[in-house]
């Protein structure tokens, strides 16, 4: 797992890469929880480098979103594409999450 975070003015950009599967999901969850606990409210998750996602990954994302919602924060996804997008689509997540074409667009949405 290799997660990078970048602090932007109004949100934290989280870049995840490689696989988000049953093996890596718990770690991503832990990291994201730490960020949320650190009073981060706005998140943009950049999927550009992600090759694979399974239901375990989707659950982490869902749980994170729920937590943020409880805190009044918000999460937006950027660059969801390819096989990952397909998984989003078949699982119906595509309609649950707000997805943008780029990190900048997502940031703009958060600030708005």
């Amino acid at each position: 797992m290799d997660m990078q975070t970048r602090k932007e003015t109004n949100a934290t950009v989280v870049t995840i890469n490689g696989r988000l599967d049953a093996v890596t999901a718990p770690e991503y969850e832990k990291k994201l929880n730490e960020l949320i606990a650190g009073a981060e409210a706005g998140f943009v998750v950049d999927f550009d480098q992600l090759d694979y996602i399974s239901s375990a990954g989707l659950r982490v994302l869902l749980a994170t979103a729920k937590k943020l919602k409880g805190k009044g924060g918000q999460i937006r996804f950027a660059n969801v594409k390819g096989p990952v997008k397909e998984v989003f689509d078949i699982s119906g997540f595509g309609s649950i999450f707000q997805m943008e074409d780029s990190v900048e667009a997502a940031l703009a949405k958060i600030s708005a």
């Binding site: 599967d21 049953a22 694979y52 239901s55």
Partner: peptide, 13 residues
Amino acid sequence: RHNLLLLVEELLQ
């Protein structure tokens, strides 16, 4: 291949 891996992982889950 991708789908197969996903299928196996989900089944195992």
